[in-house]
Design a protein around this nucleic acid. Structure first.
Length: 669
DNA sequence: CTTAGGG
DNA sequence: CCCTAAG
């Protein structure tokens, strides 16, 4: 058990949290140096804790609370430490041991099946790995130290890679993949055994809050069967069943952002539904708490499972078990509720005075006021005093020192090589050229980029390519010798066998391509895009130009985002980033915010039409399925972040009033 | 460092 | 996406 990891086993391994927030901070509890392994949940429902030993200091059991569970990641906090640990969840990812301490990110199938098999806890147990040293040859000390996988010994998982054989597997194995509920503790109580969600909305409320492990278990495939049509019933009308292989492939692409050559309908459907189920199987807290009673919001979740959430509040164990908000919000939620219940609306009152007086009367649109940005001032001023341009800018830059750490050193290093790079000032068409100083490095700072990606399925591909790229033509802005060296120096061999780079998303064509010997070789049309350094633009197929490191959002990313917002509330971007996007080193919290903003627009823009599964725009970006947009809209309304005019279109009375329980940061928007 | 907004 | 201001 302590002899390290068996080859071909799956393990939950700590993942780096994010590049923006940093691993050490969140995943490495100070002082302890080691993170606790975690187990994701079991079928009996309530389980959100598990006892695991902690290596190497002792083998004493430790409890961990699973607070979040996404497809490939599990987030947990140490149990019983309440307050301080809530802020420090640890993210674990499923990985496979391929030998000699080499890990590769779990494939999609593995993830799915692990989720599935995890339910049958009899069939798995966890062991701690003491073979860190073998595993971690990295230079990243935190990595070495922190590596502590838990293993699910599930050999059979390995056999599930072949889509063609999957079809022959028992339904129990194959079809449950959609039912994330089993993996995520918070879902345990909400999985309806049958009946379509749309129908449930009424009864579910009064439904007996008995754990349905007993009922739902035998009907796994029922759930699934009913789920698919259900999904098609959603206003979005995605009906995977009716789609041809071609269409399924298209949907797959839309969902995961890449093509697939798999022709297996079942396989495609599974994958797509899984990509989407993240959003639609998820229960959302859409209720308001008023006067000590839970009032369901008018808004309905995709599957209307939220009703079940109400039960959580009345159920005794609910508080202890609740998967998401309840734990994450944790203690503060109690406070929140106090506020709500006491009717003192402390939030509002205490917040209001703090607000600048100028905002007082701006009941709705109290957006932050911004004075003109420095850039704007600069550019504006430069447009009429061109001879200053050089010095002015640079002086301003240097005055803003500290915050621009990524610019300054570069200047110091290579001041001469870029004597005068200029860009066209777009301001007012004046055509003034101004120094390009501020654009030297567009990418975000790459703090330990490589080590960061080591555990990121989504990063591997990029990493590999980065290394390759390090040799080819330096772009004009190759002021990054340091980085390049770093890249070359760092052996990208941590997950060497991962032929499936991509974006960590819920796909893995690995199996497919291997088995089909597929014609379509290039699976990864997007991953290249983000090879960083290439700052400029690349020609796209349509002749347009696209920014080089623009990485289109995949549907599943969108789904994750939406889900994240639903859990943590819009605005908690770093939180969402850390938890839901732990496996996506790109996508900073800012990105999330931006994307959400776009989704918001999209969701309301689409309102009038209210038709069309996938807006048949010729947008090169992926179309957002209507159900998702719908949910975005719901969340937006829920969190009263709909702009007034848009809101007018939708609801009438319910606009700015009710702050729901989900809106933890009520009083400020 | 994080969030909000403008570009 | 990028950038910056404001906390």
């Amino acid at each position: 058990m302590w002899d390290g990891l068996k080859v071909n086993t799956l393990a939950w391994v700590p993942a780096r949290a994010s590049r923006s927030t940093g691993y050490a901070k969140h995943a490495k509890p100070s002082g302890k140096g080691l993170k606790k392994p975690v187990y994701a949940g079991d079928r009996t429902g309530k389980l959100s804790t598990v006892n695991v030993p902690i290596y190497p200091h002792n083998t004493q059991a430790h409890s961990v609370h699973v607070v979040e569970c996404y497809m490939e990641t599990v987030v947990a906090v140490e149990e019983g430490e309440g307050n301080k640990q809530v802020a420090d969840p640890v993210v674990y990812q499923l990985a496979r041991v391929v030998g000699d301490g080499i890990y590769i990110p779990a494939t999609n199938d593995e993830v799915m099946n692990a989720e599935d098999l995890i339910d049958h806890k009899s069939s798995l147990h966890f062991v701690l790995d003491n073979s860190q040293t073998a595993v971690c040859t990295s230079n990243d000390d935190t990595f070495d130290q922190d590596f502590m996988p838990i293993v699910c010994e599930l050999e059979d998982i390995l056999k599930l890679e072949d889509p063609s054989t999957q079809e022959e597997k028992s339904d129990a194995v194959v079809d449950t993949t959609v039912d994330l509920s089993k993996l995520n503790p918070q879902f345990e109580e909400v999985a309806p055994s049958e009946s379509t969600p749309l129908d449930q909305s009424g009864d579910k409320k009064q439904a007996d809050p008995v754990p349905e492990s007993a009922e739902s278990e035998p009907s796994i495939s029922t759930v699934c069967d009913s789920w698919k049509p259900d999904f098609s019933k959603l206003k979005g009308e995605i009906c995977l069943d009716n789609l041809s292989v071609k269409e399924l492939q298209a949907t797959f692409k839309a969902t995961f952002g890449r093509e697939t050559s798999v022709k297996d309908k079942q396989w495609l459907k599974r994958r797509i539904s899984m990509g989407l189920s993240n959003s639609c199987d998820v229960s959302i807290t859409t209720f308001n708490i008023e006067n000590n009673e839970v009032k369901k919001d008018k808004l309905e979740d995709c599957n209307n499972k939220d009703e079940n959430r109400n039960k959580d509040l009345t159920r005794p164990e609910g508080r202890n078990v609740g998967g998401d908000d309840k734990i994450l919000a944790g203690q503060s939620q109690n406070i929140q509720m106090e506020d709500h219940l006491s009717g003192s609306s402390k939030n509002m009152q205490s917040d209001a005075p703090k607000r600048p007086i100028a905002f007082e009367d701006d009941s709705q649109g109290n957006k932050r006021v911004r004075k003109p940005t420095r850039r704007y001032i600069e550019e504006a001023s430069e447009s009429d005093s061109r001879d200053y341009s050089g010095r002015q800018v640079s002086s301003v830059r240097s005055s803003g020192n500290g915050s621009r750490t990524r610019v300054k050193p570069i200047h110091n290093i290579q001041p001469v090589r870029r004597p005068l790079v200029t860009r066209q000032d777009s301001l007012g068409g004046s055509g003034v050229e101004i120094p390009y100083v501020s654009r030297i490095r567009r990418g975000r700072p790459r703090e330990n980029f490589m080590s960061l990606m080591r555990f990121q399925p989504c990063g591997i591909g990029m990493a590999t390519r980065l290394v390759n790229k390090a040799h080819d033509g330096h772009d004009p802005q190759s002021d990054n010798d340091v980085e390049n060296q770093e890249l070359k120096a760092t052996p990208t061999t941590k997950w060497p066998l991962q032929p499936e780079p991509g974006e960590n998303e819920q796909y893995s064509e690995q199996s497919a391509d291997i088995n089909n010997n597929s014609d379509e070789g290039h699976v990864d049309s997007y991953a290249d895009v983000d090879s960083d350094e290439n700052i400029l633009t690349v020609p796209t197929a349509k002749g347009g130009m696209r920014r080089k490191h623009h990485r289109p959002w995949t549907l599943s990313e969108v789904v994750k985002l939406v889900e994240g917002v639903s859990r943590h509330g819009a605005g908690r971007w770093s939180e969402i980033k850390r938890i839901a996007f732990a496996t996506c080193p790109h996508r900073t919290s800012v990105d999330l915010k931006d994307k959400w903003r776009n989704l918001l627009r999209a969701s309301f823009a689409q309102l009038p039409a209210e038709k069309g599964v996938q807006n048949s725009k010729k947008h090169s970006s992926i179309p957002i399925p209507a159900p998702i947009l719908l949910r975005v809209r719901e969340l937006a309304e829920m969190q009263s972040q709909v702009s007034p005019d848009l809101r007018a279109v939708k609801f009438d009375g319910h606009s700015g009033t009710g702050r729901n329980a989900n809106d933890i940061r009520s009083g400020f928007l």
